[in-house]
Design a binder for these strands. Structure first.
Lengths: 232, 232
DNA sequence: CGCGGCTTTGATGTTCATCAAGTAAAGTGG
DNA sequence: CCACTTTACTTGATGAACATCAAAGCCGCG
């Protein structure tokens, strides 16, 4: 986990993410100057529930998961995030900055750390930035809530189908991909047991809807998978 | 549904809600001047999914529900809101202001309408207001997500117990209260069927944990209900 | 090479939704 | 205000969906 300071390759972020769209040149320079960057290996924990967060954490490359642990130790994965996603906005709690979520790394990743004090200052002095920030916040929050509702209105086959399509369409943007998560983690995302995730994937395999080779998944019949996701 | 303009009794809001804490006097005046107020009768719909919202809607008195309808017509109640709650913040979507939620009134209610253009302007010119606004937004969003996770990790008895405690502790702040929702709506809140809501309530009645008289509920054994909620 | 974690499949049991049927309550129109 | 209709509530019986338990193979890693 090497830490690098003062790296200024944020142009991509600016272009690709709404929230930095309206920064003035000197403000952007300041973000760059105070930005830190860290690399994490697959499986490492970035922060945990209850931890004080003093930075806005931003995924530059790789894949991460945000998860929530109940008091009884059960894990719910709330969201997967690809680079430039904004879920981490929700981890900056009001006043105290205690996160109610945890974050860990699913594929080797590089994260950017922007001090919250700077972000707060920018919100303070740059109204357009504040508006973009809020817009992104609401979008992220609503997406998360909507995804929950969508998932929990489906039966098991529907959920698994939905998640496979989500990976294919939103994360990897192709029909063959390596699962970034274990079967157990899939279960934690879509809210079912590991055994039933496996069983359902096997069913799909037998029905020739997908091809499975360990962690490699190929979607053979996207149409049918969509139907299962929709009506499941 | 009578509409009243230019009513300036917002002091209570200012005191009771964080988001108006840092308004300057002249800004506050402006909020008051442009504020509209509407009364709704029990059961009326305030706005629906897909509707363009041009105001921040604020509950002054009464009780409302926010709900989400799936494409298949299934209803999920996302949240109940008491006066001065902030859920409506989440309905102001980025850029377009199309709400993904619907809102209707559970008890006769009075709502305040503050033009979004004014809110946006305030965010723009008053950094402290913007920060309070964001803080409230994140708090609301996290509460909503957390409540979902909590509920969906429980079995039926646990969910019903949780909801009864929620009404008792958060909404009415006493052990006897009138249910503001039908059995069907309870089902839509906690994600189960109407029949099983009724069945579970009957069980609790037979076990002398609660007393039921139509819509009136009295919690007799809070301790046991808490245990059921916690371990269910 | 052996241990622990991940995966897979089958058998079993529980939980919950669905179906059915009846009662009570609340509107609605004459 | 009363017959009528509709909507909400209630209970029981049944079956489907899903979790749990058990057992075995696989794989990576010390």
């Amino acid at each position: 986990m090497n830490e690098v300071k003062y790296v200024c390759d944020c142009k991509e972020c600016i272009i690709r993410n709404l929230i930095f769209k309206h920064l003035r040149s000197e403000e952007f320079q300041e973000v760059c100057r105070s930005k830190t960057q860290k690399s994490f290996k697959k499986g490492q924990v970035v922060f945990e529930k209850g931890q004080l967060l003093e930075h806005l954490i931003y995924l530059k490359s790789g894949l991460v998961k945000y998860y929530y642990s109940t008091n009884e130790g059960k894990v719910n994965i709330i969201s997967l995030s690809i680079p430039f996603d904004a879920f981490s906005l929700l981890t900056i709690l009001h006043n105290e900055q205690i996160s109610i979520y945890s974050m860990s790394v699913l594929e080797d990743s590089t994260l950017c750390y922007i001090p919250l004090s700077l972000i707060k200052n920018l919100i303070h002095i740059n109204g357009d930035f504040a508006l973009d920030f809020i817009s992104k916040l609401i979008e992220t929050s609503n997406k998360t809530i909507e995804q929950f509702l969508t998932l929990h209105n489906k039966n098991l086959r529907g959920r698994v189908a939905y998640f496979m399509l989500y990976l294919s369409d939103n994360i990897y943007k192709k029909n063959i991909f390596e699962l970034p998560v274990s079967r157990k983690e899939i279960a934690e995302i879509i809210g079912m047991t590991t055994e039933n995730v496996i069983r359902t994937l096997s069913e799909f395999r037998k029905e020739k809807i997908i091809k499975i080779n360990g962690k490699e998944i190929e979607i053979l019949e996207k149409e049918r998978l969509s139907k299962i996701s929709q009506y499941g």
